[in-house]
Computed example of a mutant assay.
Amino acid sequence: MKNIVILISGRGSNMQAIVEAARAEKWPARIAAIISNRADASGLEYAAAAGIPTAVVVSKDYPERSDFDAALRAKIDSYTPDLVVLAGFMRILTAPFVEHYDGRLLNIHPSLLPSFPGLATHQQALSFGVKVHGASVHFVTADLDHGPIVAQAAVPVLQDDTEHVLAERVLAQEHIIYPRAVRWFVEGRLSIENGRVHLADQAQ
Score class of each variant (00 low, 15 high):
G51L: 04
S59N: 12
G51D: 06
D69F: 05
V57Y: 00
V56R: 04
Y62E: 03
S59V: 12
T54H: 05
Y46F: 15
A50Q: 15
A50S: 14
Y46R: 06
A41W: 04
A48P: 06
L44M: 09
V58P: 07
P63H: 08
T54R: 03
A49D: 10
F68C: 05
A49G: 11
V56M: 07
D69Y: 07
G51Y: 04
V56E: 01
A48I: 09
I52E: 06
A70W: 01
Y62G: 04
F68S: 01
I52C: 05
A48T: 14
S59M: 10
D61A: 12
A41L: 07
D61Q: 12
D67G: 05
A50K: 09
Y62I: 06
R65H: 11
L44S: 05
P63D: 07
S59K: 11
D69P: 03
T54V: 13
A48W: 06
V58Q: 14
S66A: 15
A41T: 08
D61M: 00
V58Y: 01
D61R: 10
K60G: 03
A41M: 07
D69L: 02
K60L: 08
Y46V: 00
D67S: 13
F68Y: 15
Y62V: 04
D67V: 11
I52Q: 03
T54Y: 02
G51P: 04
V58T: 13
A47P: 09
E64C: 09
E45W: 10
E64A: 15
S59E: 12
A41P: 07
I52M: 03
D69G: 04
G43P: 01
E45F: 12
A50R: 09
S66T: 13
A55P: 02
F68N: 00
A50D: 06
T54L: 05
V58F: 05
T54E: 03
D69R: 01
A55F: 07
A47V: 09
S42P: 10
F68D: 01
E64G: 03
P53V: 09
S59T: 10
D61G: 07
A49S: 13
A55Q: 09
T54F: 03
D67M: 11
A50Y: 01
E64Q: 14
G51H: 01
A70K: 14
A48Q: 15
R65G: 11
V56L: 04
I52P: 03
A47D: 06
V57I: 13
